[in-house]
Measured scan of single mutants.
Amino acid sequence: WKITIYDQENFQGKRMEFTSSCPNVSERSFDNVRSLKVESGAWIGYEHTSFCGQQFILERGEYPRWDAWSGSNAYHIERLMSFRPICSA
Score class of each variant (00 low, 15 high):
M81I: 03
R28V: 10
C87D: 15
F83R: 00
S29E: 11
T4L: 05
S50K: 15
S29N: 11
W1Q: 14
F56M: 07
R60I: 12
F30R: 00
P85H: 04
Y46R: 02
N73G: 11
N32K: 10
K14L: 07
W43V: 02
T19C: 08
N32S: 12
E27G: 08
M16H: 08
Y46C: 04
K2H: 05
Q55H: 15
R28C: 12
R65P: 00
E39C: 07
E39S: 11
W1T: 12
F30M: 09
P85T: 11
G61D: 02
W66V: 12
M81F: 04
R79N: 15
L80G: 02
T49I: 12
S29K: 10
V38W: 00
R65W: 03
M16Y: 06
F11T: 00
K37W: 03
G13A: 00
V33F: 03
I44W: 09
D67E: 14
E39T: 15
I77G: 15
Q54F: 07
D7A: 10
S70E: 14
W1D: 13
E9H: 05
E17C: 08
I77Q: 14
Y63T: 05
L80H: 01
Q55W: 09
S50V: 06
H48T: 04
A42E: 15
F56R: 09
S82W: 02
T4E: 09
G41C: 03
R65Q: 10
W66S: 13
E62N: 08
N32F: 11
F30N: 01
N73P: 11
A68R: 08
Y6T: 00
S72L: 10
G41D: 03
T19E: 06
M16L: 12
I77K: 14
L80K: 03
I3V: 04
T4D: 07
P64D: 04
H76D: 13
W66F: 15
S40Q: 14
S50D: 14
A68P: 04
E9Y: 05
I5T: 04
W1K: 11
I5C: 08
I57M: 10
D7H: 04
D67S: 13
E9W: 03
Q8S: 09
I57T: 15
F56T: 14
S40C: 09
L80C: 06
G41Y: 01
N73M: 13
I44R: 05
L80V: 06
Y75N: 15
C87F: 12
A42Y: 08
A89N: 08
G13H: 02
I86W: 10
S26T: 11
E17Y: 06
S50P: 03
Q8W: 00
T49E: 15
S21R: 05
N73R: 13
